[in-house]
Simulated scan of single mutants.
Amino acid sequence: MKRSKGVALGLGIVALVAALGWWNWPVTVQAARPTRGPAIEAVYATGTVEPTILMPVSPRAGGRLTAVEVEEGQHVARGQVLARIESDDLDQTVSEMRAREQLAQAQFERTRQLVEQGFMSRSELDRARTELQATGAAARRARVQRDYAQLTAPADGVVLRRDGEAGQFVPAGQAVFTLACCAPLRVTAEVDEEDIARVTVGQTVTMRTDALPKQLFSGMVSEITPKGDPVSRSYRVRIRLADAPPVDAGPLRSGMTMDANLIVSRRDGALLVPNAALQGSTVWLVSEGRLRRRPVVLGVAGAGLTEIVSGLGDSDMLVLSPPAHLRESQRARVAPGVSTLPPFASMNGQ
């Protein structure tokens, strides 16, 4: 009986010692010190590269294309014929109106001579003059309508796109050519209505495109549309590219998608920590071999890092991805490989 009690007591002591050992056993954590870098608050938007001046060229009247005179990428001059549309009926109309005009002209001359000789009244001359003017106007109108069968360049520019082939019927108003004229490329972006209040004309913009991943583009907000789109709930923002290339210079081309960061504020030398180290507005630190839970004041939050306004110092050892079971004052040891966090170029993570 006494021996059983002794065994039980011994087991209890062992269990107590094991529990105390487990309780005081140091937990191994990954840790790093914060870093200093720029904290950039930015509005993110997606945009498209486009010419500053875009000119679609379309026929005023539908018809079949009989000839296409230019190709995509070709430079054209103002007034140059780009394509021709069948116009046999208009040619006949012009010939008819020209004949009527010649007849009216001859009739006017005969009437004028007879009036001067006193064989006809002046009212007959007025009637002949009116007929001549009417037929002349009809002839000019016919020639203008025939000229509509030729698609011409409205200004000097570059043919960006051609949407028609010889023999194809083109409805009235459908663009056959798209030209870019006399201005460099720009970016048009859509900004969510929740962020548009933080966007102003003159704001600095940094941009990148997946088509040119190694290049970073800079620009400035030049225009903000006064009315938003109620469907997409966004506002159109025009961005002027710094050192913008011509539309055909490359490698930046019209139609490329651009990720834009519209800079709201920038603070150099800000204290930055990884988002994974945060538990709400608190962090875990390793101090003298013990874990300490510390509240912090957060600043700009990005996709990878967050700015710490107060509550943390440069020399503090920050626990990375702290487990949920950590306790205040718990013994801890830092796993090998303690590092300083790499600098971060943009707080919005774009």
Rank of each mutant, 00 (worst) to 15 (best):
A197N: 13
S234Q: 13
F169E: 15
Q168L: 00
G255H: 05
F217G: 03
V237A: 05
P226Q: 06
A197G: 10
S234N: 13
T225P: 00
Q203D: 01
V205A: 06
D243H: 15
T188C: 06
D210N: 03
G219F: 07
P246H: 08
A138E: 09
G164S: 11
P154C: 10
A153Y: 14
P213A: 05
K227N: 13
V221I: 14
C181P: 00
E223I: 04
L241M: 15
A183P: 04
T152R: 10
G157K: 12
D156G: 14
F177L: 02
D243F: 05
A211L: 13
Y148T: 13
Q145F: 03
P171T: 02
D156R: 09
A142G: 13
V231M: 02
R143C: 05
Q203E: 04
S232I: 00
D192K: 07
D229Y: 10
V205S: 13
V158L: 07
L212A: 14
R186I: 03
T204I: 02
I224L: 11
A211Q: 07
A249E: 13
A142P: 03
V247C: 12
R238V: 07
V237I: 13
D229I: 10
Q174S: 10
L216E: 13
E190C: 07
V247Y: 01
V144H: 09
R141W: 09
A189Q: 12
E165P: 01
K227I: 01
V176M: 09
A242I: 02
Q215R: 14
T204E: 15
Q174R: 15
D192F: 02
G250D: 08
L241I: 02
E223S: 05
V201M: 12
R198G: 04
D156M: 00
V247K: 02
G173N: 11
P184W: 04
Q215L: 14
S218E: 07
G164Q: 11
L252S: 12
D192Q: 10
T200A: 14
D163L: 06
D156W: 05
R240G: 05
S232K: 11
G228T: 05
S222L: 03
G250S: 14
Q174V: 15
V170R: 08
T209H: 01
P246F: 03
G173T: 05
